[in-house]
Amino acid sequence: AQPPGGQSVEVSADSATFEQSAGTGVYRGNAELIQGNRRMNADVIRLFTENNQLVRVEATGNPVRMREGSELQARAKNLVYDLKTRRLVLTGDAHVDHQGNTFEGARVQYNLDSRRVDASSEGDKRVRLVIPAKNTEQGTAPDNGEEGAGDGAANDNATPNPNGTDGGKAETP
């Protein structure tokens, strides 16, 4: 069976340490992960396996960088890639450029299937959303924004929470 998420995953680094009992592998030094056209570069990449299958990747770096073709560019201090739910969670100065729109926040979550972006603030780090004029003219129609409700249409116009209070959540409708 392919690893969750379809394509095989290649991870490389200067050195690595495996913990047999814990089923974890820590790759250090110029660490890179490649899956299809998805590429992640970090200082440290930590892999977690379940029943001999790779299920979770945790990367740290200054920053961690992730690219998916020309459509997605993301960076943050920490990045967690859950292969089963096919979701990226970026924390620590998270920044996502997706189809020309930019999302910044303390925490940005990106769903690889629905292309949905959730950015949330924390402390004084507020959410920032930049939609270039070109994108607004096209008038992407936001759908109801339930998790996974998207029918795959690009729905990345996030409406920041007006009062921007702590824990305010700018959800993509």
Partner: peptide
Amino acid sequence: EMTLGKGVVSEFTG
């Protein structure tokens, strides 16, 4: 614990 060095490349094919 197993430590690998001098360049490590892993491929997870499932």
